[in-house]
Computed example of a mutant assay.
Amino acid sequence: MFAHTVTVAADLMSNGTLKSMLDLLKQAVILAGGALMVFGGITVGSNLKDHNGPAITGGLLELAGGALIAACGVFFTQLAS
């Protein structure tokens, strides 16, 4: 069973399918992190006007989470190449 899995993985790596799948995954993770950062920034900006403390905190956490996700995508890019 394990030998078959290794053979399948080697076949995927040899024809470039795995590399193209990893490239697509890296781009999707970075894009998702960027989108989360944008929505976090919008949340912070719209709630600063209203002086809504809990919503500002949520927006800042969303912004930080998006930055962390995007950073993981960039790290994954460095790791896979």
Score class of each variant (00 low, 15 high):
residue 56 I to L: 15
residue 1 M to N: 00
residue 71 A to V: 13
residue 49 K to H: 07
residue 8 V to F: 12
residue 19 K to N: 01
residue 60 L to N: 00
residue 49 K to C: 09
residue 26 K to P: 03
residue 60 L to R: 00
residue 65 G to N: 09
residue 76 F to G: 10
residue 45 G to R: 01
residue 31 L to M: 06
residue 38 V to I: 13
residue 44 V to Y: 05
residue 54 P to W: 09
residue 67 A to I: 15
residue 37 M to T: 08
residue 55 A to H: 14
residue 57 T to H: 15
residue 53 G to Y: 07
residue 48 L to K: 05
residue 76 F to C: 07
residue 63 L to T: 13
residue 10 A to S: 12
residue 39 F to W: 12
residue 79 L to R: 05
residue 16 G to A: 05
residue 64 A to R: 00
residue 5 T to C: 14
residue 20 S to N: 07
residue 18 L to I: 01
residue 73 G to K: 01
residue 23 D to Q: 07
residue 50 D to N: 12
residue 28 A to T: 05
residue 3 A to C: 10
residue 56 I to N: 11
residue 77 T to L: 05
residue 78 Q to D: 08
residue 79 L to H: 08
residue 30 I to T: 10
residue 23 D to R: 07
residue 24 L to Y: 08
residue 68 L to H: 03
residue 49 K to I: 08
residue 35 A to S: 11
residue 37 M to W: 03
residue 72 C to F: 15
residue 75 F to W: 13
residue 68 L to Y: 04
residue 11 D to P: 02
residue 40 G to Q: 00
residue 67 A to P: 12
residue 12 L to M: 12
residue 75 F to P: 01
residue 74 V to C: 10
residue 33 G to L: 06
residue 39 F to G: 02
residue 34 G to S: 02
residue 11 D to I: 10
residue 38 V to H: 06
residue 38 V to G: 06
residue 77 T to N: 12
residue 9 A to K: 08
residue 27 Q to I: 13
residue 11 D to S: 10
residue 26 K to M: 03
residue 81 S to Q: 14
residue 6 V to T: 06
residue 54 P to V: 09
residue 43 T to P: 01
residue 21 M to F: 10
residue 70 A to T: 11
residue 23 D to K: 09
residue 24 L to R: 04
residue 70 A to E: 08
residue 48 L to H: 01
residue 77 T to R: 03
residue 72 C to T: 12
residue 59 G to S: 04
residue 70 A to G: 11
residue 12 L to V: 04
residue 8 V to Y: 14
residue 60 L to D: 00
residue 43 T to N: 13
residue 32 A to P: 01
residue 18 L to N: 03
residue 20 S to R: 10
residue 23 D to C: 07
residue 8 V to W: 09
residue 15 N to W: 03
residue 43 T to Q: 12
residue 22 L to H: 06
residue 51 H to W: 14
residue 44 V to F: 04
residue 60 L to M: 11
residue 28 A to E: 05
residue 68 L to P: 03
residue 76 F to W: 06
residue 40 G to H: 03
residue 14 S to R: 13
residue 30 I to L: 06
residue 72 C to G: 15
residue 64 A to H: 01
residue 60 L to V: 04
residue 50 D to F: 13
residue 12 L to S: 09
residue 30 I to N: 01
residue 27 Q to V: 12
residue 35 A to M: 09
residue 36 L to P: 03
residue 48 L to E: 05
residue 34 G to R: 02
residue 47 N to G: 05
residue 40 G to Y: 01
residue 32 A to T: 13
residue 62 E to Q: 12
residue 19 K to E: 06
residue 57 T to I: 15
residue 52 N to E: 10
residue 4 H to S: 15
residue 78 Q to F: 06
residue 49 K to L: 12
residue 11 D to V: 08
